[in-house]
Amino acid sequence: MDFFLQQTINAVSLGGTYALLALGLAIIFSIMGMINFAHGELMTTTGYALMFAGLAGLPFVIAAPLAVAVAIGTAMLMERIAFRPVRKGSPATMLVTSFAVAVILQTLFQNLIATRSQPVILPDALAQSVAIGDLTIGVNQILSITITVIILVALNWFLKRTTLGIAMRAAAEDFSVARLMGVRANAVISGAFAISGALAGAAGVLWVAQRASVDPLMGFVPVLKAFIASILGGLGSLTGAVAGGFALGFIEIFLTAYLPEDWQPFKEALALGIVILLLLVRPNGLIPAFNIGREKV
């Protein structure tokens, strides 16, 4: 029972990070109809910001929000420089653009910083844990769960209670009509990128806090997980992205926890198999977007 509880906590913690990542992809997709494959590079940027902040001697409590701010800025710049000119292009054009942005950033990191992985200085507290009864919960996990909850609550508040938030939901559903309401496309898209940058930044801090290093290609695995999670949840659906993230976390953790040893080498394939099965049952994802198939900006 303790084993099960412990694994459940592990799954919530991992799923939460996936949820943040998937949400970052979903919020852009819902508005622009584009999968931003450069989302992972926003995380990498966060990692490098943490690294430099650490080298400059800044304490983690300052470095972390600073790194998130850098991710927000980078996301907005990315939109302004790379995506705005192709906004009216075909989905394929936007997709290729996002790949290009990802590769350009990776190359910049390699050439301007280093090809090899760089250590990130982290407080030792992050590598410690708290014992609650028979359970051991890593400080890292507590941080991950707390940040995920705070962000989900804050984002929910923003999307439901502020005019910009409501405008973003409206734009996600029907951009032309949102413009008829005087909703400025630039403001909404820029806002969406800022939020996705914040989500990538938060996930990036959590990711780096786990691995204590950053390298130019760090963003690849997380963006892949986010992609799987957001497809599983329902592409473009924000609630779906969160559900997909948690579902993926639970699938991965519980396969590792309960699969017999001989089967362990196939767990990644099995996890994807389960995702595909779920999609066969629910082709539009766990919680489909409201406006599947409607044209975007």
Partner: peptide
């Protein structure tokens, strides 16, 4: 990135 399940085992 996450080894919590292995480590719990």
């Amino acid at each position: 990135q996450d080894f919590s399940a292995e480590i719990t085992k």
